[in-house]
Simulated scan of single mutants.
Amino acid sequence: MNKTMSIIFAFLLLINISCSKAQDKLKPIINSKTMNEQPIYTLKVTSSNPYESYINNMVLEKDYLTGSSDSELIINDLILKSGKQKLQIVLLPNDGNKTVDKLGIDYLTLSIYRYNNGYSSYVERKSTLIYEFKLDDPHVEMPLITKEWIFNIDVPYKLKNWEHSIDLRKEDEDKLLKEVVDYYNHLANIINKGDKKSFLTIMKVKNSEVFKSLYNDAELIKEDERYIDNKLSKSIGNIQPLENYNIMYYGNGRIVTLEDKKGETPLFAEDKNDIYSYQIYLHRPYPNAPLEVIR
Rank of each mutant, 00 (worst) to 15 (best):
K197I: 12
K197T: 13
K197Y: 08
S198E: 14
F199P: 05
F199H: 09
F199S: 04
L200G: 02
L200K: 11
T201D: 12
T201V: 11
I202P: 00
M203C: 04
K204T: 08
K204W: 00
K206P: 01
K206I: 01
N207E: 13
N207D: 13
S208P: 01
S208L: 08
E209F: 01
E209L: 05
E209G: 12
V210T: 11
F211C: 02
K212L: 13
K212P: 05
K212N: 08
K212S: 10
S213R: 02
S213H: 03
S213K: 02
S213N: 08
L214Q: 09
Y215K: 06
N216E: 12
N216K: 08
N216W: 02
N216P: 00
D217Y: 03
E219P: 00
E219S: 11
L220W: 05
L220N: 04
I221S: 05
I221F: 02
I221R: 14
K222M: 09
E223Y: 03
D224L: 04
D224A: 04
D224P: 01
D224R: 07
R226Q: 15
R226K: 15
D229K: 12
D229Y: 10
D229T: 13
N230C: 03
N230T: 11
N230V: 00
K231E: 10
K231A: 13
L232R: 04
L232K: 05
L232S: 07
L232G: 05
S233T: 12
S233Q: 14
S233R: 14
K234R: 15
K234V: 01
S235T: 10
I236Y: 03
I236D: 07
I236Q: 07
I236R: 10
G237K: 07
G237I: 06
G237Y: 06
G237A: 10
N238V: 01
N238G: 00
I239F: 01
I239Y: 00
Q240R: 11
Q240L: 10
P241Q: 12
P241Y: 06
L242P: 06
L242C: 05
